[in-house]
Design a protein around this nucleic acid. Structure first.
Lengths: 238, 238
DNA sequence: TGTACATCAGTGAACGCGCGTTCACTGATGTAC
DNA sequence: TGTACATCAGTGAACGCGCGTTCACTGATGTAC
C-alpha cells in the first residue's frame, strides 16, 4: 500500500525540511529560546495549525532539531577523519579536533542548542539523542584507541591510567553505549573534550576574543599541548 | 539635604534587594531567559508598575544582576585566597581554583547568567561589567605571578612563553584593564581558565555526570594536571 | 512643636503585543474498483 | 480509463495565557518654615 513514494509523500518531506530550516534560521537571529511555531508559520506563509501536521507540538520540533545537530556534528567529524584516511592516526585526530571547533564556530546556534543553556520546560529524551552523541564521540575515542594500538602515542602521567574514582563510570559507559575502545582511550577522550569545550563556549559568547584575539590560533596551541600531555607524537602538519 | 539616610531610603534599599533576590530565585526555577517583571511583582504582591520605581526597565535589572554575580564570584575567590593567607602561593591558588567551581556549582543559574547563552535582545554594558570581571580574574593571575616571583613555579614548554599570535592582545589587556602582572602570568591565567571552564559548563548542564560520575574528583585531577603542566610544585594538601 | 507643601513608593487599568494549542472546515491528492 | 470514496495538507477563527511599558492617581513619608 504505502510502499511507493507518492508525490504527496515527497512534498511532505520537503515541507518538513523547510520547517526545520526556518526554525534554525530564526534561532540564529533570535537565540535558541526564541523559537516559536507562530514565527515559523509566519515566515513560511502558512497557518500555524498546519505545523501540527508535522510535529505534535513545539517540544517535538526541538527534539528533531537537537538530534539533527548531533548528527550533523558527528558527520562533520567523520568527514574530517575520512579526508585524511591512510595518513597517521595522529594527523586524523588533529583534523577531527579542529573540525569540532570548526563546526561549532560555523554553526554557533546549533552548538548552543546542544551544549548551551537548557530551554525552560523542555527536556530532551535521552533515547533519541544518545545514539547521535555516541556516533560523534566514537570518532574521537576511536582514533585515540588507534593511536595506542599503532604506537603513535605512549601514555605518560598523569594521563596513563583511569583514576579510580572515574573507573566505574567509564566502564559502565563503555558497556551501555557500546564504545569499542579501551577504558583509557575513553577517559582521555573525555579529558580532551572537557578541556577544549571551554574554549569553544567562551568563544561562542565572545568572552575570549577581547582577551587573546586569534582564537583559532589559540585553539590549535591547546590541541598541540593536549597531544604533548597525552604522549602523542606531534602531527606531521599544522 | 540628602545626606542622612531616612527611613524611606532604608526601605528603598531593602525593596531593591528583595527584587533582585526574587529575580534570582525565579531564574533558578525557570531558567535565565524566563525572567519577567510581572512574575517578580506577582511574587512580591506588588503592582508591576511599582518595579519601575527601582529599575528603568527589564534590561537594567538584568545588568544589575550580572554585575552582582561577577562581584559575588570575585568575592568568593578572594575569600578562598585569604583563608590561606601566609601559606605557600600554590596552596592559595589551589583553593581559589576549587572555589571557582564551588561557586558555580552552588550558584548554577547565576553562573549561567554570566557565562551562558546570551539573553535575546539584551547586551550587557561592558563599562559596568568589566571592573567586576577584572576583580575576580585578578585573584587568579595575581597568584600565578606571585608563584613565579616566589620560585614556586618554574615555567616549562609549552607554557613558558606567550605565543606570538596572542602577545598583542595580552599586552593590550594588561594596559587597558590594569592587571599588575606579567604577560606570561596573564596568559597562563587565561589558559587555565579556558581549560577548567569546559568542565564547569558541562557539569552545569549535566553532560558530564553520566560519563565520569564524581565531577568534583575529576575537577581536582584536572587542576593537579594543570599545576603539573605549568611547572608548579604540587600543593601541600589534597 | 505645628502646619503647609513636596516628594515619591505604590496602585490599577489599559495598550498592544506574542505565544501554543484546538477545532470544524475545505479542497486537492491518492486509491479501489 | 472513469468514477466514488478516503486520505490528509492546509485554513482561519477562537481560547486562554503571559509579557513590558505607560499613565493618571492616591496616600504616606519627609522637609521647610
Amino acid at each position: 500500500m504505502a510502499e511507493h513514494r507518492t508525490w504527496r509523500d515527497q512534498r511532505r518531506d520537503e515541507t518538513l525540511q523547510t520547517i526545520k530550516t526556518v526554525a534554525r534560521r530564526q534561532m540564529a537571529e533570535q537565540g535558541t529560546t526564541a523559537i516559536s511555531l507562530r514565527a515559523i508559520a509566519r515566515d513560511m506563509n502558512i497557518a500555524v495549525s498546519a505545523l501540527y501536521r508535522y510535529f505534535p507540538g513545539l517540544d517535538d520540533l526541538l527534539t528533531a532539531l537537537i538530534v539533527d545537530n548531533f548528527t550533523a556534528l558527528a558527520a562533520a567529524l567523520e568527514a574530517a577523519r575520512d579526508a585524511h584516511a591512510g595518513r597517521p592516526y595522529r594527523a586524523q585526530l588533529w583534523a577531527v579536533l579542529l573540525a569540532y571547533r570548526g563546526w561549532a564556530v560555523t554553526n554557533p546556534v546549533d552548538f548552543q542548542l546542544i551544549y548551551g543553556n537548557p530551554i525552560p520546560g523542555y527536556h530532551a529524551p535521552r533515547e533519541q539523542t544518545v545514539p547521535a552523541v555516541v556516533r560523534g564521540f566514537s570518532v574521537i575515542v576511536g582514533l585515540i584507541e588507534a593511536l595506542f594500538q599503532a604506537g603513535e602515542a605512549v601514555p605518560a602521567p598523569p594521563y596513563d591510567a583511569v583514576p579510580p574514582s572515574q573507573r566505574d563510570h567509564i566502564r559502565a559507559m563503555i558497556a551501555s553505549d557500546g564504545y569499542p575502545v579501551s577504558e583509557l582511550a575513553l577517559y582521555l577522550g573525555v579529558a580532551g573534550w572537557t578541556r577544549l569545550h571551554g574554549i569553544i563556549m567562551l568563544e561562542l559568547f565572545n568572552h575570549l576574543q577581547p582577551v587573546i584575539g586569534d582564537v583559532g590560533a589559540y585553539y590549535r596551541q591547546e590541541v598541540a599541548a593536549l597531544f604533548h600531555e597525552f604522549g602523542v607524537k606531534p602531527p606531521p602538519d599544522g
